[in-house]
Amino acid sequence: MAQHQVKFGNGLPVALTTVDKIVNWGRSNSLWALTYGLACCGIEMMASGASRYDFDRFGTIFRASPRQAEVMVIAGTLTKKHAEFIRRLYDQMAEPKWVISMGSCANTGGMFNTYSIVQGADRVIPVDLYLPGCAPRPETLQYAVMMLQKKIRREPANRNRNIPQKRFI
């Protein structure tokens, strides 16, 4: 994070950085996720939060309220009956917010090529990260969260979804 370290005499070292970097450092290391277990992927998501895979290490704490959450992990099959509510919960989340679409069902509808399943959660809400697998193992979800952290760190801190941002690798 720190770009320069300056040491004054015998005092404490001072770290110099940019506002973007320190804001993104804070954001990316405290990704509070909205519990959104819709189907069997939800079990894997719960396992990721439990002791063996321990998401708390990443600062990812599952919250039951959209107002306390930054990232929505859509874990499971999104039915058309439920699409309205996922959109409402997404709208209730405070900016900045991100969405991980976890598993085949949330990505494309998966094997449920039927009348009642939304064919990809991105028809309803914007998705930042698509996580393949059926169901993805907790390691995969961990990797997705790490990728999302990377993504957050390279974005400007005052990002606004309505203004197209220049993207950096």
Binding site: K80, A83, E84, R87, T114, Y115, S116, R123, V124
Partner: peptide
Amino acid sequence: TYPLQGDESAQWYEVDKI
């Protein structure tokens, strides 16, 4: 007689509603 992938109103259900 109901199509497996839904009729028109089913296919646009979530878009129309939201």
